[in-house]
Simulated assay, not measured.
Amino acid sequence: MRIINQTKNELLADQTLLANTFLARLKGLLGRRELSRGEALALYPCSSVHTCFMKFAIDVIFLDPAGRVIYLQENLIPWRCSPFVKGAVTVVELPAGSIRDSRTMVGDLLVFDDDRYGGADLV
């Protein structure tokens, strides 16, 4: 699954895992040594995250039900928590530096697409 910042016409990730069950969200990125460029984890439903027990920093994008960016958390280092973001239903975790590199801003529209589903939005 790909994540595209439609507002900026910028590919954020071309290898996205979807964590949409309790167990998948609970595990998240735990046990991983890194998140490589082009990889992402999309958590749904979700309105806050933590990096306890993680070994690396991440960038975090919070989305409303329409896929609009409503909050950005850059370089969330291990053993920290994001704020609870009211109105967020999806959280995208990306390698640190991804927000800066893609110029993603509050108000941008992110689109999730997967060729297996005819390019349909999944979130």
Rank of each mutant, 00 (worst) to 15 (best):
E39T: 13
G28R: 11
M1W: 09
A40M: 07
G67V: 01
V89I: 11
L12P: 01
S48H: 15
S98G: 08
D108G: 11
D14E: 15
R32Y: 09
I61F: 01
M54H: 11
N5Q: 04
E39N: 15
F112M: 04
E10S: 09
E34H: 12
R100M: 04
T7S: 15
R116A: 13
M54K: 11
N75L: 07
L26I: 10
R33K: 15
K86C: 03
L63V: 08
F56S: 14
R68Y: 04
H50Y: 00
I77K: 15
P78N: 03
D64I: 06
S48E: 09
L30S: 09
K55A: 14
A19P: 12
V106Q: 12
F62Q: 01
D114L: 01
A120V: 15
N20Y: 09
G67F: 00
V49I: 15
P65R: 03
P95N: 01
E34F: 13
R37T: 13
R100L: 08
G67N: 03
P78W: 04
I70W: 05
I58G: 08
I61W: 02
A96S: 14
V85P: 07
N9I: 06
V89C: 02
W79M: 09
I3Y: 03
H50D: 00
I3K: 02
R80G: 00
L43R: 13
S47L: 06
V111T: 07
L41P: 11
I3P: 02
M54E: 01
V91M: 00
L12I: 03
R2W: 01
M1F: 11
F22W: 13
G118H: 05
L109N: 08
D108E: 08
G107D: 05
S47V: 05
P95H: 00
S102V: 03
D114R: 06
D121I: 12
S102P: 05
E93Y: 09
D108F: 12
V111C: 02
V89L: 01
V123T: 12
K27G: 07
V85K: 08
G97E: 06
R80S: 01
R32V: 08
R32I: 10
S47E: 07
L76G: 05
I58P: 10
R2Q: 07
S82A: 06
L76P: 07
G87W: 00
